[in-house]
């Protein structure tokens, strides 16, 4: 745990775990199936950092990413956590 928390780094945008309720709301708003969302690996440093803070994150969890954007000021992005790909 003494490791550096990537989420605190200036260049890493804010990652939020969506609750099931929020997830439904977001998907309804977007009008799409969950699997059409962009993916984020379960092994992504940001997800691992979130796991250290909040406990295990299941595959299929939707993450909201709030980025600073040169064009829009702030932009909101969603990603679905996808499973570990490589055996072992």
């Amino acid at each position: 745990m003494a490791r550096f928390n990537v989420l605190n780094h200036e260049l890493v945008p804010e990652h939020q775990i969506l609750s099931k309720k929020d997830e439904q709301k977001v998907l309804k708003e977007l009008g799409i199936r969950k699997d059409l969302l962009p993916k984020i690996s379960k092994n992504d440093p940001a997800i691992r950092a979130l796991e250290e803070l909040n406990g295990p994150i299941a595959e299929g969890t939707v993450i909201r990413i709030i980025r600073k954007s040169p064009t829009a000021g702030v932009s909101v992005y969603y990603r679905m956590v996808s499973g570990s790909e490589v055996i072992k």
Binding site: P38, T71, S75, Y77
Partner: peptide, 22 residues
Amino acid sequence: EKRRVVDTSGSIIQFSYGEDGI
């Protein structure tokens, strides 16, 4: 129609084109 960038399978690449939809 919603100014999103999507591929042929309907997967989303960007939620608003160029992040600002302009």
